[in-house]
Simulated assay, not measured.
Amino acid sequence: MSKPETDSTTASGRDPGPAEQAAVRIDEVAVRFRTRKRDVTALREVSLDVPMGEFVAIVGPSGCGKSTLLKMVAGLLKPTTGTVRLNGEKVAGPRHDIGYVFQRAALLEWRSARRNILLQAEMRRMPGEQARRRTAELIEMTGLSGFEDALPHELSGGMQQRVALCRALLHEPPVLLMDEPFGALDALTREQLNIEMNRIWRTTRTTVLLVTHSIPEAVFLANRVVVMSDRPGTIREIIDVDLPAEREYAATLAMPEFASVAGRIRELLGAGAAVE
């Protein structure tokens, strides 16, 4: 387990060199806003480096600023102080080179699964043949073969989220942001998608930032888990997950290393934290 990070470091505690440049660098970020009654500090002194190809999960109490962090990386929200960089470039506005998966799939009801995925290509004006080939690869990768022409209402919740994931990965983004993507699913479907997500990440090696309220999900999927404090949110501790890259669900959850990391996260969050 690592010490709490208060500066921009990699998992090893070093500044990333040229071969280990951070895909995401969050440096001394704070977010403050004013309500009708008072000033609110949502985040304070948050620093985090995510090396290319790493899977990082962010957990913490409800309202601690987890989703706010993702919005800053996406360029949808500007920090009050501090900076956010993607692949060395300062984030100054909405980024079109990322993928974003939300809790709800947000599919267009009148478009088939394939055409919902291709909506990304239309918006980005990707070459048609390239987009169709990539769509076919993703459909096979995510187990959607046979459902390409199904409309959203003909798909289960898990399948709809697979379509949303394919749409986010279509343009091969260097960074994938996931904001509670499996939170609304039943436990079995969520477990299946956790297994699928681990396999997809091992295949693509896309840099992933996942926000989740589920401690088992965070530990199962991530290389490191960022544990946030109550609002104003800051990083309490960053914990290395020393598990094999390929993870079979039941066997992984039974490992003492898994129990150790999950136990430490629960200890940091406290018995009353709003997490699973």
Rank of each mutant, 00 (worst) to 15 (best):
E45R: 15
A42N: 11
T68S: 12
V59W: 03
P61R: 08
S62M: 10
R36I: 05
L48H: 09
T68R: 10
V50G: 08
E54D: 15
D39R: 13
V59F: 05
D49C: 13
V56K: 02
V56L: 12
R36Y: 01
I58S: 10
D39T: 14
D39H: 02
M52I: 00
V50F: 06
S47V: 03
R44T: 15
V59G: 05
G63N: 06
V46N: 12
T41N: 00
K37N: 12
R32S: 11
E45M: 03
V46P: 02
F55D: 02
S67Y: 00
R38N: 12
V50T: 05
T35L: 04
G65M: 06
V59S: 03
V56A: 10
V59C: 03
P51K: 08
G53C: 09
T35V: 00
R34F: 01
L43Q: 08
F55P: 02
T68F: 03
S47A: 09
R36E: 14
L69S: 09
E45C: 07
R36S: 14
G60P: 01
L48D: 07
M52F: 02
M52K: 15
V56Q: 03
K37V: 01
E45I: 00
I58L: 15
G65D: 03
D39G: 07
S67Q: 04
S67I: 01
G60D: 07
G65C: 07
G63L: 06
T68M: 13
E54L: 00
R34P: 00
L48R: 09
V40S: 11
S67L: 00
F33M: 06
D39A: 11
V40Y: 10
D49W: 06
G65K: 04
V40R: 11
V40P: 05
D49L: 04
L69E: 01
V40C: 08
D39S: 13
A57W: 01
C64D: 12
M52H: 14
I58D: 05
S67M: 05
D39Q: 14
K37T: 14
K66T: 10
S47K: 12
F33G: 07
E45Q: 15
